[in-house]
Amino acid sequence: MWQPRGRELGAIKSALFALCLVPFAHLVWGVAYDALGANPVEAVTHSTGWWTLFLLCATLGVTPLRRATGANWLLKLRRMLGLYAFFYAALHFLTYIWLDQWFDLAAIAADVLKRPYITVGFTAFLLLIPLAATSTDAMQRRLGRSWQRVHRFIYLIAVFGVLHFWWLVKRDVTEPALFALVLAGLLGARLYWLLRRLARVTRAAVATSSG
């Protein structure tokens, strides 16, 4: 399996960095040139929400892809994808509290408490914060084994993201259903590995006790 060396990996990372900025650049350009259609705030909310969910799924896709292809270097891109998911989530949240609600704290609180789609979206965003905060090498070293346990919250965050999308559409669930399908595949892969490992452990245990 081909593995990029230092400079090549750097180039790949730079390209991915730029690629992930494209939706943001499009929004900035669209706002500047009034090119986001009749309801720009809605366009920004939808775009940032969509890319958050897309990038969450992309982050979750790294490990299955790595295991399927043996391209271990893909792991080196995972942190960037995850941080970009957080970046778009933060923009999404900012759009909501600022451009949509104008910092009307009472209205925001009412939304978070009363509207299930906001409740799960808000929870997902809160859960993303510690993951972003502990994403550095130093934090990873300091937390050791618990780092992985903390970062497993991404499974829940992605599920909440899909629920949030599903609950907010008026009628047409095609897109949230597609995301649900992709997410089911990504989480299903983990479940499959887990079961296989359990089976192997059990077999090994049986083998030792009978041998």
Binding site: A38, N39, E42, A107, R115, P116, Y117
Partner: peptide
């Protein structure tokens, strides 16, 4: 049930 009707955005 899923959003407030207290305010609106005037398009354009």
């Amino acid at each position: 049930p899923r959003w407030s009707q207290a305010r609106e955005r005037r398009i354009g």
